[in-house]
């Protein structure tokens, strides 16, 4: 049953791997990472700088490219669905056909310069964590892109929505958190602020990276709940769990919509 998905993925990967945007995306990460090595030096510094790149670029590119990808795959989707292919299989193949190449590109674009600068092995764990987070972000924002593209047939509207959604998660939401922090500074805020952060996948990924790479800064806050939550394995597991929800909920919604929708 699922084999149809695998068959389709095989061809889609061939298609995507030849497309220009994958080559641009790969080149971008290679150039940035290598430039960081040239100017910054040590692998630790490069990873720290890459954190910002990952948090900024990946959600934006994933959601924009993803939305465009779904719209551009419309006719192809229709054609394959007129073959003996189930809608669920097609949906999985489409999603994998976006998420896999994006993830592989990011992973390779970051890891390759580490290899030729000779510091891959010494930074394997840290790099794995960074790339892992990058892939999770890619997956979440690809899932959101599917949601948007299945929400409206109008390509321009969809792309606009994608930009707004990115802006919301990347900038506006954190502004709201800061407003809440200032407005209610007389109240105990640790729990509400932690919960608010959980509701934004980009904040979650950012915090997961901070826990690993900048605990020294994060631990500067004395709040007990905060300390307990962010300093423990339990906290990290919670974050991982919520991130998984951020992948599965948009995907589940998207899949349901995809199965019942008219083409």
């Amino acid at each position: 049953m699922k084999t149809n998905t695998l068959k389709l993925i095989k061809y889609q990967l061939r298609d995507v791997m030849r497309s220009r945007w994958v080559i641009f995306y790969l080149a971008f990460f290679i150039l940035v990472t290598d430039a960081l090595f040239r100017f910054g030096g040590s692998g630790d510094r490069v990873i720290l700088s890459l954190m910002n790149v990952v948090l900024l670029v990946i959600p934006l590119v994933s959601i924009m490219l993803g939305t465009m990808y779904v719209y551009n795959s419309r006719e192809y989707t229709e054609l394959m669905l007129s073959q003996p292919v189930k809608r669920g299989e097609m949906f999985s193949a489409l999603f994998a056909g976006l998420m896999l190449p994006l993830s592989v590109t990011v992973a390779a674009g970051i890891a390759l310069p580490f290899i030729w600068n000779g510091v891959l092995i010494s930074h394997l764990a840290a790099l794995g964590y960074l790339i892992g987070t990058a892939i999770i972000l890619t997956t979440i924002f690809s899932a959101l892109a599917f949601m948007i593209a299945l929400l409206t047939e109008d390509k321009i509207k969809g792309l606009g929505l994608a930009v707004v959604m990115w802006l919301f998660f990347a900038v506006i939401y954190d502004g709201l958190i800061l407003v809440v922090i200032y407005m209610f500074s007389d109240y105990p805020l640790q729990q509400p602020v932690l919960v608010m952060s959980m509701l934004n996948p980009l904040d979650l990924a950012r915090i997961a990276l901070l826990i690993e790479f900048e605990a020294s800064t994060l631990m500067g806050f004395t709040g007990a709940l905060f300390q307990r939550f962010l300093g423990s394995t339990g906290g990290l597991l919670t974050i991982a769990g919520v991130l998984m929800l951020w992948i599965s909920l948009p995907l589940a919604w998207g899949a349901r919509r995809f199965v019942s929708k008219d083409f």
Binding site: S19, E75, Y76, S82
Partner: peptide, 12 residues
């Protein structure tokens, strides 16, 4: 099925 406008993946 032969549709009005067939569009398969560009790079295949």
């Amino acid at each position: 099925y032969m549709p009005q406008n067939a569009r398969y993946p560009d790079n295949l």
